[in-house]
């Protein structure tokens, strides 16, 4: 992995809900074309950190830079333009159920990016092709499997030409046999040089495809490193017990 320029940089990020601190002093750098995996127990703040990166969640303090822009300083009314640069994929897909697959992918292109309709449709078909679903362009979301819906959601985000893609547990809501198709799309994206920050429990995928793995617990980044380092040689007790629990889900490690 060549040392590219920094695409996303989180500095001293904190998030509190009322009195509860969810994120405390998070520092994280993601370089261009890097795939960084975030793992950790539920409630560790992974998703909240991800959602701060496009300000679906407002950070309490700290700074986030994306592609050289300090997005934490952007006034609320200018958020929409920033979000075009940050693609997000949700656990629950959230396709618009009243629109065809094609229209799902076209909508933000024409309304937010102000692309002409013909160009937006061509781009949408190209992106659907990339996720292997061009033939489903006229289908409605409820006619697709979960895995297909998630791939459409990825195409919807990609069509806006984002600089960074955020994945919030993209395969957690899928039947096991459908997970592979979504992971394959993510792997293709990585090969194309997309910068990706992924919150997920797919440890095997992390081992295989991640450039770096970040372990979060209790609102802190406890440990980070290459997949070999994090999975092969965990240093902290918390990471060790987390990995033990994940690999032996039936064993009570508490």
């Amino acid at each position: 992995m060549t040392q590219g320029r920094t695409m996303l940089e989180i500095t001293a990020l904190e998030k509190r809900f009322d009195q509860t601190a969810v994120l405390r002093a998070i520092d994280l750098k993601v370089r261009e074309a890097e795939l960084v995996f975030v793992i950790g127990p539920s409630g560790s703040g992974k998703s909240t950190m991800l959602r701060c990166c496009n300000r679906l969640e407002e950070p309490t303090s700290g700074a986030i830079m994306i592609d050289g822009q300090r997005i934490t300083d952007i006034p609320r009314r200018d958020l929409d333009r920033m979000r075009l640069k940050v693609g997000m994929v949700f656990q629950g897909f959230h396709l618009y159920p009243h629109m065809s697959v094609l229209k799902n992918v076209v909508l933000a292109q024409t309304k937010a990016l102000k692309r002409p309709k013909a160009e937006a449709e061509a781009r949408a078909l190209e992106m659907l092709d990339q996720v292997g679903l061009k033939h489903k362009a006229e289908a409605m979301p409820n006619e697709l499997s979960g895995g297909q819906q998630q791939r459409v959601a990825i195409a919807r985000a990609l069509a806006l030409d984002p600089k960074v893609m955020l994945f919030d547990e993209p395969t957690s809501a899928l039947d096991p046999e459908l997970v592979g198709s979504v992971l394959k799309v993510m792997k293709d994206l990585r090969a194309k040089g997309m910068t990706m920050l992924v919150v997920s429990h797919e440890m095997a995928f992390a081992r295989e495809a991640a450039d770096r793995v970040v372990f979060m617990d209790g609102g802190y980044i406890v440990e980070q490193g290459t997949p070999e380092e994090v999975f092969g040689n965990p240093k902290s007790d918390r990471l060790k017990s987390f990995l033990a629990r994940v690999s032996n889900p039936n064993e009570d490690a508490a």
Binding site: D80, L84, F90, H94, Y96, A108
Partner: peptide
């Protein structure tokens, strides 16, 4: 969230 995350107002 899906709408807002894709830059729609």
């Amino acid at each position: 969230e899906a709408g807002r995350a894709t830059g729609l107002s």
